[in-house]
């Protein structure tokens, strides 16, 4: 599971163009990292592309932090 965390953090860092060490797992993607809602969709699109993690539309609005994304990824991998 630690691996998933690392990989998702790396993917998000690449999409939002912020170094990994500056991304806290509990940081608010939108308020703290300056991600706008559409760049947020690109994070989910990249997850879908790379790991086939399909985040349902209804859940999108509730995702605020990297930890939220990791929780959904873990749930789908299980």
């Amino acid at each position: 599971m630690e691996n998933i965390e690392k990989e998702i953090k790396a993917l998000v860092s690449k999409v939002v163009k912020i170094p990994e060490d500056k991304i806290d797992l509990d940081a608010d993607l939108f308020k703290d990292l300056g991600v706008d809602s559409l760049l947020g969709v690109e994070i989910f699109a990249a997850l879908d592309k790379k790991y086939h993690i399909d985040i349902p539309e209804q859940k999108l609005i509730r995702i605020k932090t990297l930890n939220d994304i990791i929780a959904i990824a873990e749930e789908q991998i299980k």
């Binding site: 969709v41 690109e42 989910f44 699109a45 990249a46 879908d48 592309k49 399909d54 539309e57």
Partner: peptide
């Protein structure tokens, strides 16, 4: 391919 548009198309 790096194309990530499949997810966007699904949302649209």
């Amino acid at each position: 391919s790096k194309d990530t548009s499949a997810y966007w198309r699904k949302l649209l």
